[in-house]
Amino acid sequence: MAEPVTADPDTGGVTAEPTPPPGRPSVRPGRRRPPVRRALELSLLLAPALLLFAVFVLLPIALAVYYSLYRWNGFGPLSDFVGVENYRRALADPVFDRAIWHNVLIAVLSLLIQLPLSIGLALLLNGRIRGRAALRLIVFTPYVLSEAVTAVVWLSILQPNGVFDQFLTAVGLRGSIHEWLADGDIVLYTLFGVITWKYIGFGIILMLAGLQGIPSELREAAALDASSWQSTRYVTLPLLGPTIRIWIFLSIIGALQLFDLIWIMTLGGPAGASTTMATYLIDHGFRRYQFGYGSAVAVLLFTVCFLFALAYQRFALRRDTAGAVDRAMR
């Protein structure tokens, strides 16, 4: 992520300073200007972004840590200091444990089902096919819809005896009809299905972009003396590695933070069967006015995401990220 910075004349790199040819004034901006003016420019440019970021992103997160040490309903003074009690309570609450488990389950299911599906469909769509542009547009459409709209769409479709059940009946699968959102054993898988519907297009587009980055000579050369399965397995997939690793990262972070869709479709129910960390947080923080406790949950959620991101960055992404942003913009 940190790009190598080229020789830095302003920070005392005396030796790095190439002497300008005599008679030709140094015109490199950033030098030869009064330092006061420079400082003024800098603060003018940086202050708005920094202020905004500090007040609305950093401060609330710091406050969350602070509030998490109190028992507090969001009104009146913070007086009931309880230390790490909120954290202990959250970790001991079986509902919260289940919420974490649900997040993990969604993440694992994504890896097992969405990842192969995205790659496979991208490989198929990457071949010669009529109307490819239109196809991509269509595949990507659900991703553009908000989770709120997606949730309402599927609430209508999955109504008991609704269009989905009718469809199953029509194709002779009447026996497999369930109460998709009311059955505690099923609901999480139903939600996973909806999530897959919404996000698979993103995976496919991402993989297609990755496939496009593989020089076609390589694939053609591989096709000369390998079966299509072999050339896919030993040439295409390894070269797709960076894209796959990015997808995994985004998918897991997304799974850990899942909220909108579930909140609208089930409110985390029935009986906590589809609670996630985020719905648990909003449920306790806002609906029950447990601001201290909710903050502790928020900090836990953030810690989980942060540790995962750090570990993933260190072990999986490191070799991919150098200069990745520049490449992406080309």
Binding site: F53, V55, F56, V57, L59, P60, I61, L63, A64, Y67, G74, I253, Q257, F259, A278, L281, I282, G285, F286, F291, G294, S295, A298, V299, L301, F302, C305, F306, A309
Partner: peptide, 16 residues
């Protein structure tokens, strides 16, 4: 900051 989900900050943000 890319890693800070809005969800984490919402309670304090709301109070703010």
């Amino acid at each position: 900051g890319l890693l800070f989900p809005l969800g984490v900050a919402t309670l304090p943000l709301y109070l703010l």
